[in-house]
């Protein structure tokens, strides 16, 4: 069977393949074999990933495998809970089965964070216009995902809202455009500009409050093969009611923060160092502060049109 867009397949065959461990999700540079017995998660995949490429078969070689299952008979008996199993038993929060799609997303993130070594991974969101990429650091909880989702509506393509995936051969950034995870107030904010039909149901009472996901877009999937080069590194800070503010920061400081956010930089070693240093060439880093989404977009526009200092 060849690669197809998931929504072109009959629902039933996707359901079957998911439960029988025969479906590979092919997104960006990764192929992930999914083994999903849980119906809620199956429906979530069918909806949020409808634009993604998949392949069905027994013989698929994949980078990762991902299982969402109740953890064991014992616990199933007492309270139905779900633990993601990204190919190895990583200690993850067992979640009530009503939150199983979170387990899926968490597990897919763990796969990249802990099992990928052929790219240098940094914890940051990435969007791009043309080949110019904007890295949005996850540091300080400054609304990385909201800003990422806002930029998606503003003509940017999404590479990832979770990871900067740096190609260690050519220092470009790879796209892995999974659903964008939105927390608490961000859910309504994003619904307002992206349309609520593009946002999943809200999962309440998660370990992090309320969570919803913004569906992946056909355009991002189609462009996923095109790499982009880093041009700006942003450290956003959202402060209710704050006046917009831009501060250029030392690139060395930005680099240190990126390295500290990487789960695999140390493991990869020299290729990661070299690629990161090449990536930093000509890049500028800024701390930005803003009180609302419009301001944050304006800041980004300003920065992109600014002459290199």
């Amino acid at each position: 069977m060849t690669v197809v867009i998931m929504k072109d397949l009959p629902e039933a065959s996707v359901f079957n393949a998911l439960s029988e461990k025969r479906l590979a999700l092919k997104l960006g540079p990764f192929a992930t074999r999914l083994n999903i017995g849980d119906e809620l998660t199956q429906r979530f995949i069918l909806d949020m990933y409808q634009e993604a490429q998949v392949e069905i078969g027994n013989e698929l070689l994949c980078d990762f495998s991902m299982t969402v299952r109740p953890p064991n008979l014992y616990r199933r008996f007492f309270r139905k809970q779900i633990v993601p199993d990204p190919g190895f038993n990583f200690p993850a929060v067992p979640l009530p089965s009503a939150l199983s799609p979170l387990a899926l997303e968490m597990g897919l993130n763990l796969n990249v964070a802990l099992q990928c070594f052929r790219f240098a991974i940094f914890h940051a969101g990435v969007v791009a216009k043309g080949s110019e990429a904007l890295i949005i650091s996850a540091k300080s909880g400054g609304g990385k995902s909201t800003l990422t989702a806002a930029l998606m509506e503003d003509g940017f393509r999404l590479l990832s809202d979770e990871f900067a995936i740096l190609d260690i051969q050519d220092a470009t950034l790879k796209a892995y455009p999974r659903p964008v995870s939105l927390k608490n107030q961000a859910i309504d904010v994003v619904k307002a500009f992206a349309g609520s039909e593009n946002v999943s149901a809200t999962f309440t009472d998660t370990p992090k409050g309320n969570i919803a996901y913004r569906r992946i877009r056909a355009s991002d999937v189609a462009a996923a093969g095109q790499p982009a080069s880093a041009s700006i590194i942003l450290f956003p800070e959202f402060v209710e009611g704050a006046a917009p503010q831009i501060t250029q920061i030392d690139l060395a400081d930005a680099a240190m923060q990126l390295i500290a956010s990487s789960p695999n930089y140390q493991v990869i070693g020299e290729p990661a160092f070299t690629a990161l240093m090449v990536m930093l060439d000509g890049v500028q880093a800024f701390e930005i502060k803003y009180g609302n989404t419009e301001d944050s977009l304006e800041i980004v526009h300003d920065l992109l049109h600014r002459e290199p200092s």
Binding site: D250, L251, A252, A255, M256, I259, Y265, Q266, G269, E270, F273, T274, M277, L280
Partner: peptide, 18 residues
């Protein structure tokens, strides 16, 4: 070198130092 800072990668240890 990035400004006054030097990123030094030690090939033996695999560690980056500032």
């Amino acid at each position: 070198q990035v400004g006054d800072t030097s990123f030094v990668y030690n090939r033996l240890s695999g560690t980056t130092h500032i």
